[in-house]
């Protein structure tokens, strides 16, 4: 193997990620090649420098803060899902009810709160307007 090929493998070699045969080949090479030995030495220096960066300390209450925050946000998320789900169901039910009533003018009259509804011909703009108004009033 040439030096350039050996050097490409040095990173995996120092991490112990090469198979036994390749590792032995590299070991043998660096024993006799000062250039590749220096290369490996510099790779190790890089690792030492990165590893030696000062450790950052957490604030004292970090653990308790994280636990309570996680539990709190998780509860809010599940509550929101339930509330959103129920609201959506109610909205859909009302909407389908309104549409069904709109296109079935012969349906038995509901407990209408607006008298004007009866004065407009079925499917006219006025009928639709008062029908929607009636629905939003809870009729």
């Amino acid at each position: 193997m040439k030096c350039s090929q050996i050097r490409r493998k040095l990173s995996a070699f120092m991490d112990g990620e090469l198979d036994g045969g390749t590792s032995r080949l590299i070991e043998k090479h660096i024993d006799t090649c000062p250039g590749c030995r220096e290369y490996l030495h510099e790779f190790r220096e890089v690792d030492d420098l990165v590893h030696g960066l000062p450790k950052i300390e957490l604030s004292l209450d970090f653990t308790s803060r994280v636990v309570s925050e996680a539990v709190k946000t998780s509860n809010i998320a599940s509550r929101k899902t339930v509330t959103f789900g129920s609201s959506l169901r109610i909205l859909l039910a009302r909407l389908s009810d309104a549409v069904f009533n709109l296109f079935e003018p012969g349906a038995p009259p509901s407990t209408r709160t607006l008298d004007e509804l009866g004065d407009c011909p079925p499917l006219s703009m006025g009928y639709i307007y008062f029908k929607i108004l009636d629905q939003s009033n809870g009729g």
Binding site: F62, R65, E69, A70, V71, S74, A77
Partner: peptide, 15 residues
Amino acid sequence: IAEDITQEVFIRIYR
């Protein structure tokens, strides 16, 4: 900002 991100990571882990 690392502490804030770390907290967010744990919230995601919990969920």
